[in-house]
Design a protein around this nucleic acid. Sequence first.
DNA 1: AGAACCACCTGGCAGC
DNA 2: TGCTGCCAGGTGGTTC
Length: 270
Amino acid sequence: MPELPEVETTRLGLVPRVVGRCISDVVVREPRLRWPVPRGLAARLRGARIRAIHRRGKYLLFEFEAGHLLVHLGMSGSLTLVPPERPVRKHDHVDLVLDSGDIVRLNDARRFGAVLWVRDPARHPLLDGLGVEPFDDAFGGDYLHRVSRGRRAPVKQFVMDARVVTGIGNIYANEALFAARIHPSRASGRISRSRFDRLAGAVRATLTRALAAGGSTLRDFVGSDGQPGHFQLEYAVYGREGCPCPACGAPVRAGRHSGRSTFYCASCQH
DNA sequence: AGAACCACCTGGCAGC
DNA sequence: TGCTGCCAGGTGGTTC
């Protein structure tokens, strides 16, 4: 599920009703996420004020005076803001109970997500190796061109590499490569500067459109208000094997790159 | 350094 | 109806 647009949708939904509130309790029903949820979170956070919610790549960072609570949604996670009387459902693993009474609730069927305490995000191993943000000024065709020199891996793998650029997962890699008319198998080190300009623009345009649609919901993603996104209705190629390419009508083809499904138009993308 | 592959986990679906 | 096998939005770790 959650790539940059879904994580940012979650963040934007939480900010108005969460930032400035204090934590009154933390309830951990299932600590076995990707890494164990640290013990003693409730004792550490009770009474602490949430100063801001940041996003870095697909990570959310709840900022407190003493450090940050890092949340990752993995493949199937969602964070919703629910009233105190909302019944607990299956896979509701962690609650942040606010002094307003509202609860920030993490649901994650597959438990690939994470909740960790991070004292210094700038020096945390999960964060300090991350590449540029797609909407940062440092990101662009020039950057992609420079970083890709000498690399033989397919460009799809390259744009999904969080050490290069963050937030782009399988769906948006497929969609951005289609929009840029670049074949997903092309060796990243053999793509010209001007085509990388096109790709960088396509990445930003695709993410912007997805964000405007509240992200994508294929199965279980919901925003902080519990509502699904609807960008999946606008996919040009993802999950559309055999359907006509929206640009030329040729059937969309499917393949695989490093274990992930790839969709592309063989006549538009080179 | 870069690339290929596995691991983690549950749920949904196709096929029998 | 129910079983089996496969697939899924992510990413750290191991191996070559």
